[in-house]
Design a binder for these strands. Structure first.
Lengths: 351, 351
DNA sequence: ATGAGGTGGGAAAGCGCATTCCCAATTCAT
DNA sequence: ATGAATTGGGAATGCGCTTTCCCACCTCAT
């Protein structure tokens, strides 16, 4: 890395580094047109590219924003990343990416790395975990984030607030009303569905999943329905598939003829729902004929899936954008929340 | 951003900054155990986080790798990004992300930004364009990349080499044998399919799509079939949908009863194929009953799509990983190529 | 006892840039 | 014509860190 420097440009142009700096980057003072032209000329022939590191050091502001996701290949996160990227570009920032597989320990590492890089703000997406085995790592994550904030960093949180973190102005959380929306979904489904409900959820302690389970149950209760069984599996396509296999067995065992027997399966995210659907199909069962199925998130890439999946639509890209802007702006703006909506499609229609 | 500095830590520990630096970061020289402990102690109480910018400036090496993709929300790119991220983590690097909508102009900007940040290497994914309106921007992109390389940067290219770029050791391209694989696919399909073929391609001039079209045509020719019609649309789901609508009309018009009349549609990527499928379904046509359909890429999230899509499997994540490693390693290793394979599924089976 | 060869901490010189001062040259009002 | 105000370029300092040198102090062999 032997790029040419500002002083080299200055020397070539026959001016001082100060002047070169002033013309090459937006300074309050603008050198004379002729001299400016000479500097620009020199910069061009030398192929000068300003060293952002040095600039950052000198003005202590890096133009970096850090993004933390569980898995960038997951459409849920890549949609959010898209929004973050768009906002970052608009605000003339670069995004630094870290994937953590959802473990608080790796999230903590990512925060530390971003802090070292002096990222101006970081947006962290992905469900929190309340599992006891993660407690220690969660505490450390919170400590790391607090330290980051104490040093002037700002963080945008997608979803639910992070536990154990100091109550400061530095955190902006874009709340996703998981519970509320799951409740709405349950109520809608309960209006037409006669049979029992069952929930295919992520591991217990995964906040997002837990909230959706809770909301769905309360929605059922509102509708005067008995609580649904909950199956806990991995929070991904394969987890859904596993659950689907088991449910298929259950469905077949109970001679699924009567509408009063037909199951309605709610998977706590779309990707799991797809897994469930694949498993049922695998077992010779059809949706919605043999069971209703609903998901959550309304992942764009799954819209062409058939039967079309009933789900809760979330403006994922918008969420990413909002989180980024919130983490970048100084003014409060209050706790931003985002709106979702129940989207009923074929997978939960009457057979 | 008022984080504590190394000298503050040093002062607190009662040692020189040099010593503090030596203990806090891996240096060749290791201070005495007791003094090291004191420094670590001080660093801890001050919540010291090394300033990576300053470190980068001092040792001129940033640990940054830049990733350029068309669209991070596209599963093709997010799969590659996943691989890049994994490799980067393994090599203790951070990844800087830029999305460009596939325009050479924005790609050039991204390269410049990465160069300014002194990224050690950059991996650039996504089809090149040979359209005349992009010629100028392509030249500029090549110039920018060359400049980056002249300054010591290294670049890993996914897919086809970048046009107009200097022939140096600095470029490593992970070749995707699009043409070869498309030819293989065509041959396979030609073995069983009796009717005419049609290709739903991206815009003319989009290299990836062009290569696949060319390969497919030559495969047909090998099999003694007439060349396929080519429909050019946007290289995404909606483009596929548009083409699908048109094709549905064509299919219906030609009373599609006989096997000799049945169309086999090859979309130059999976996402387009999904769009085609959606359009056909929309028009009351069924795959593979009324037409065969094949894609390219074997996107993971589309595997549960029905009818299962015949396609060409590409190890996307591996490609990202390879490109990253190639751009990071100094030794040549020769031009790496990646293996794909024809994957026939239900969407092209006989009705 | 004495000089050679080690050891290990500190001083200082950058890395590439922004920016505050400082000062010479102009301009303007009176 | 003259002093004040303004303009615009340059010298110098510092951002936070690494890394060479340098040197005081020790250890050891002779």
């Amino acid at each position: 890395m032997t790029a040419s420097t500002l002083s080299e440009v200055a020397k070539l142009a026959g001016v001082s580094p100060a002047t070169a700096s002033r013309v090459l980057n937006g300074s309050a003072r603008t050198p004379a047109p002729d001299i400016a032209e000479r500097v620009r000329q020199a910069a061009d022939t030398l192929g000068y590219i300003a060293n952002a590191q040095a600039q950052a050091l000198a003005k202590s502001s890096t133009g970096l924003i850090g993004l933390i996701v569980h898995d960038i290949a997951d459409p849920y996160f890549s949609a959010i990343a898209q929004g973050v990227q768009a906002a970052a570009r608009q605000e003339r920032r670069m995004v630094l990416l870290a994937t953590t597989n959802g473990t608080p320990a790796e999230e903590k590492d990512a925060v530390a790395a971003f802090a070292a890089r002096r990222a101006e703000s970081i947006v962290i997406a992905g469900s929190r975990s309340t599992r006891s085995e993660d407690a220690r790592a969660n505490t450390e994550l919170a400590a790391e984030l607090d330290r980051y904030c104490r040093n002037g960093g700002r963080v945008g949180v997608v979803g639910q607030a992070i536990l154990g973190v100091a109550e400061t102005e530095s955190y902006r959380t874009i709340a996703v009303p998981n519970e509320q929306l799951a409740r709405d979904l349950a109520r809608e489904l309960a209006r037409t569905h006669k049979g029992p409900f069952v929930i295919v959820a992520g591991p217990e302690g995964l906040t997002t999943s837990d909230e959706r389970v809770k909301g769905f149950q309360s929605g059922l209760s509102d509708a005067g329905k008995p609580a649904a069984d909950v199956v806990h599996v991995a929070f991904n396509r394969n987890g859904g598939f596993d659950a689907g296999i088991e449910l298929a067995w259950r469905i077949k065992a109970s001679g699924q003829s009567a509408p009063e027997q037909r199951l309605c399966i709610f998977a706590t995210n779309d990707v799991m729902a797809i897994g469930v659907a694949a498993a049922l199909r695998d077992q010779g069962l059809r949706v919605p004929h043999d069971a209703s199925l609903a998901g959550f998130d309304d992942i764009e890439w799954l819209r062409d899936f058939r039967p079309a999946l009933s789900t809760v639509s979330l403006p994922l890209e918008e969420i990413g954008r909002l989180a980024t802007m919130a983490a970048l702006s100084n003014d409060d703006g209050g706790p931003a929340a985002v709106a979702g909506s129940v989207t009923l499609r074929r997978s939960t229609s009457s057979p």
